[in-house]
Structure formats: C-alpha cells, structure tokens
Amino acid sequence: MSAVRSKHLKEISVGEELPRFDLTVTATVIVAGALASRDFMPAHHDRDFATGQGAPDIFMNILTTNAYVSRFVTDWAGPEAMVRKIAIRLGVPAVPGQTLTFTGTVATATAKEVEIDIKASNEFGDHATGTVTLTVPV
C-alpha cells in the first residue's frame, strides 16, 4: 500500500469544499453494507418486505450511511485524520437506482478540531445532513 497524503491543519481553510462524491447506489451496495454491519433487518435486503412496510424499495441502513459519511471525509483528510464525531439527521431513504451525492464544507478548523458540514442527497431529497468532527495533524 503506497503512502497516502494526510492533510495538516494549515492546509485546511474554513469555507473550503470537499471534493464531491457520487455513490452509485445499487441493491448490491445496500446489501453488502447491511451484511458487513451485521444488520439482518429484511428492509435492507428483501424488496417485498420493504415495500410491504411502505418503503419504495430496499433502503440503506444507518450503519452504512455512517460508513460512507466517514469515508467521504477521510478520503479527503487522509489516514492521519481521526473522526471524533458523526452527527447526522436522517431524511429520505437511499434506494437502488439513485445516485447518492456527498458534499461537504469546512465549518471550523482549529488545532482542537475540524468540523465539516456534510450532506448526502438523492432524487428524493436529503438523505443525511449533519456534521463530522475530526482531529488532524497540526
């Protein structure tokens, strides 16, 4: 594994936007995430069960959403970043066939912590909005 560059505090400025990340959400993405997180709730793998509960299709579980939010931020900040907090408000479901777009903006950047306002949205609207708090090397 080649070394991956990590961002230092001086390279991060308030208002900076993270590179947008478009996740192609398929049934496989949803099922792979649910099973890796040991979440066997049928709404995350069984379409008949999900639609029977009033959902449009199987939908992403929250652990997977948190996993992608974390990845979105550390893909930008690098392997030295430590995630301290992931606080999200949950909105519309992430379903197969819709791209989930992650965007983020640096809200604060201090030696104590870096806060990123993040949003993941699809055709339905906002799937998750919130804040990821990191510490990065000074």
Binding site: V4, A36, S37, A67, P79
Partner: peptide, 17 residues
Amino acid sequence: WVDAMDDRNPVYLYEDA
C-alpha cells in the same frame, strides 16, 4: 466492512502503513 464500503483508508488493513 472496508470491502463492502469500498473504503481504502490504509489504517484499517495495512500494518506497515
């Protein structure tokens, strides 16, 4: 997990890194 989420952060799998 990292395969399912396609997360390539090396700190999760590669001891040297």
